[in-house]
Lab assay of single mutants.
Amino acid sequence: TRVETATETAWISLVTALHLVLGLSAVLGLLLLRWQFPAHYRRLRHALW
Rank of each mutant, 00 (worst) to 15 (best):
Q36V: 13
R43S: 10
H40N: 07
V3P: 00
R34N: 03
A39G: 15
G23W: 14
A26H: 00
H46K: 04
R34I: 12
L18I: 13
S25E: 00
W35Y: 07
W11A: 07
H19Q: 14
L28T: 14
A17H: 02
A47L: 05
T9G: 13
A39R: 14
W35R: 12
I12Y: 13
A39S: 11
T1P: 02
L32K: 02
W35F: 13
L22N: 02
V21C: 08
S13W: 15
L44R: 02
L44D: 02
L14I: 10
I12L: 11
L48K: 01
S13D: 04
R2K: 14
T16N: 04
L33Y: 07
Y41H: 05
S25P: 02
L31P: 03
H46S: 05
R34Q: 01
R34A: 07
L18Q: 03
W11S: 11
L24I: 10
F37T: 03
L22T: 05
L20N: 00
L48R: 01
E8H: 08
E8R: 09
L44E: 00
P38K: 15
G29Y: 01
H40G: 11
L32R: 02
R45N: 02
L31H: 02
W35Q: 05
W49L: 02
E4I: 09
L24C: 13
L14F: 14
H46T: 10
S25W: 05
L44M: 15
G23F: 15
G29R: 00
L22I: 11
L14S: 11
A6V: 05
R34V: 08
L44S: 03
W35D: 02
L44N: 01
A6C: 13
A17T: 10
T5K: 00
I12K: 13
L28G: 08
H40V: 06
L28E: 00
P38C: 08
A47N: 05
Y41I: 09
L28V: 10
R42G: 09
L32I: 05
G29P: 03
R43E: 05
L22H: 02
R34T: 06
L20T: 10
W49P: 00
F37G: 03
R42C: 05
H46M: 15
L22C: 10
E4G: 06
L22V: 11
F37D: 03
A10G: 11
Q36H: 14
A17D: 02
V21E: 02
A10W: 15
A47M: 04
R42I: 08
L18R: 02
G23N: 02
S25F: 10
L33C: 15
A10T: 13
S25L: 12
A47D: 04
L14N: 09
R45D: 01
L33V: 07
W11C: 08
Q36D: 00
L32V: 11
L33H: 02
L22F: 13
H46A: 05
R2T: 14
L48D: 02
L32D: 01
L22R: 01
H40Q: 15
A17L: 14
V27W: 06
L30C: 07
S25N: 05
T5R: 00
R2C: 06
Y41L: 11
S25A: 15
L30Y: 07
H19P: 09
W49G: 01
L48Y: 03
H46L: 08
L14D: 07
W11D: 07
E4H: 07
R45H: 04
R45C: 04
T7R: 09
I12F: 10
H19T: 14
T9H: 14
I12S: 12
S25K: 02
R42P: 04
V15H: 12
R45G: 04
G23H: 00
V27F: 11
H40P: 08
P38E: 05
L24G: 10
V15R: 07
L24K: 02
L18E: 02
L18Y: 05
V3A: 03
A17E: 03
L18D: 03
A26R: 02
L31Y: 11
L32T: 07
L31C: 14
A10L: 13
I12E: 06
F37W: 11
T5W: 03
A26P: 06
A39Q: 15
E8M: 06
L44A: 07
S13A: 11
L30F: 11
R34D: 00
E8Q: 06
